[in-house]
Amino acid sequence: MSEKIIKGHIGIGPTVEGIALAAADNFSTRYDLDRDRGIVSRPSHKLYGDNYVGRILVLNAAKGGVASAWMLREMVQKEKAPLGLLLNDANPVMAQGAAFAQLPLIDRFETDITAAIKSGDRIVVDPARGLVRILASA
């Protein structure tokens, strides 16, 4: 398969390569995650029970309040963070959190990113250029 490139807005953080964990659900670090165990803990979330640590989370929109700004950095320092975050729509808190944690984040893609990437895909996230490359599909 040839590489597929998806364009988004210029993002935040360093370039990373890893495996995607994707769903069309929304995202909040406070509401949806067990940050001690590194799993999605909200029963109604499509990724419920999945381990997100070291994965590139691909979800729809940031939701909820201010907590994520502090929490993302704490998660990175405790090695309980995703490797990167791709959202259709980030909110200020998620951007502020990603910048504080230096966690790769891109949003505002030319297509629905949750439909374009599947769990298990190997991808490269390049925030400086606002690009995602799908290296291999699951």
Binding site: V66, P92, Q96
Partner: peptide
Amino acid sequence: CNFEAGPS
């Protein structure tokens, strides 16, 4: 105002 979370 925007959400200006803790560090922000």
